[in-house]
Design a protein around this nucleic acid. Structure first.
Ligand code: MN
Ligand code: MN
Ligand code: MN
Ligand code: MN
Lengths: 216, 216
DNA sequence: CTCGATTTTTAGTCGAGTCTAAAACCGAGT
DNA sequence: ACTCGGTTTTAGACTCGACTAAAAATCGAG
């Protein structure tokens, strides 16, 4: 019913809503790397299909149906990622991009088999929660790695998953969900830190630290 | 490089070439359930991309590149089917349709992992050979089930895979690749047969028998 | 409250892929 | 060699999704 393009817009809108705002044309356009004019056109199509409510010059918000569709897509995406890393043993920095295509092609039967085979996982390989079959998104309380004080210990909850090079670096450092880290030193000026993780000491810049969140 | 639509045309052309003819506009149109006008337009696009050679009013034939692309697609399709039945335990009558979408979305890394996990299978669940990584299609010599004489024993090689209802029926009868059958009785008029298969006697119509081939 | 900057929408174009209807072509049969 | 029937191509239209450039609306600073 919804085309691949429509699904990608719904996801972008969902992500922006999730950050608190009511997304406007410009934000969605930027998120998808598409022109503002294209976005206006798509907003109308989505509104026509009842997937968003759209006010001219006023942005969009997902309807119940639109949100349900977006959550289904996220479930497909994250279960696909899990499958690719856990069962196919593909590197965690590559699976996001693959899942971005598979999420549009995997039918429900396949997705639910994945869930079964993988033991109903609750998060994707990058730590983000997987929406349940009935469309609820489990909440995970996190805080920035940068907010952990010197001497404190914390457990990595999730990492930013869009930048493959960054992910590969995090993987080499051992900064994956579930890793226990202790802050050895922190530089308030630029946010860079020295951590103990997995027995060895590692150095992370403010930018890298900003891509990691720990359990609250 | 090649769109999903182009890939579907290439596959249709491949299948028709495989049957011996040089496919024309009408045949390809019918195979894909599309108008002849659309097919003419696509023939031009494919020729433009160097994937087929096209003569007006004279049909098409796959170029080296076109054939390689088609064989890659068939490899993806059949390995995906194997994966869906063997690892995900989905019914063999449903996987063809799912694979028809996945074949366009699965990247090489994933396909080769499938091949590894499944032990480099040589055929899809319906018995059709899987092209090798280097683009060769293993030849399997078969003959129609209908040509087996009364009293003879034969091993099912492959079955027609496009009709889901028929496939389900074949599955219930136990007529899957590898099954050993003995012909008990044969009605020359309409080709219907009585077979012994898996210890029990089954009755197959001429049409059903026509969907099954045995090893020569 | 107004003016200028920014954002959004509109207008117009494009390519891919589809359709229908009309024209052109080809090949057989007389 | 003509002609008729079927096939193929052309012509013209449509949808979806994208673009650029121009117009319109909104917002913020003075
Ligand atoms: Mn996507
Ligand atoms: Mn992820
Ligand atoms: Mn297909
Ligand atoms: Mn098959």
């Amino acid at each position: 019913m919804a085309s691949q393009a429509m699904e990608d817009y719904l996801l972008a809108i969902y992500r922006l809503e999730d950050l608190g705002r009511r997304p406007g044309t410009g934000e969605v356009a930027q998120e998808l790397g598409v022109s503002a004019a294209s976005t206006t056109a798509m907003f109308k199509r989505l509104a026509q299909e009842g997937l968003v409510s759209y006010r001219e010059y006023g942005g969009v918000s997902l309807s119940e149906r639109g949100r349900a569709l977006a959550l289904g897509l996220i479930r497909r995406h994250r279960l696909a990622e899990r499958f690719l890393t856990d069962l196919l043993d593909l590197p965690w920095e590559g699976v996001h991009e693959i899942a971005d295509r598979l999420e549009h092609a995997l039918p429900p039967e396949v997705i639910e088999r994945f869930a079964g085979l993988l033991g109903e996982p609750r998060t994707c390989p990058h730590g983000h929660p997987i929406p349940t079959r009935d469309g609820r998104l489990p909440y995970i309380e996190v805080r920035p790695l940068g907010s952990v004080e010197v001497g404190e210990t914390a457990v990595v909850a999730l990492v930013e998953e869009r930048d493959a090079a960054l992910l590969r670096h995090l993987g080499e450092l051992g900064l994956k969900p579930g890793a226990r880290v202790r802050v050895v030193e922190r530089e308030p000026f630029d946010g860079s830190m020295r951590l103990e993780c997995d027995g060895r000491e590692i150095l992370v810049s403010g930018r890298v630290a900003g891509a990691v969140a720990v359990h609250a």
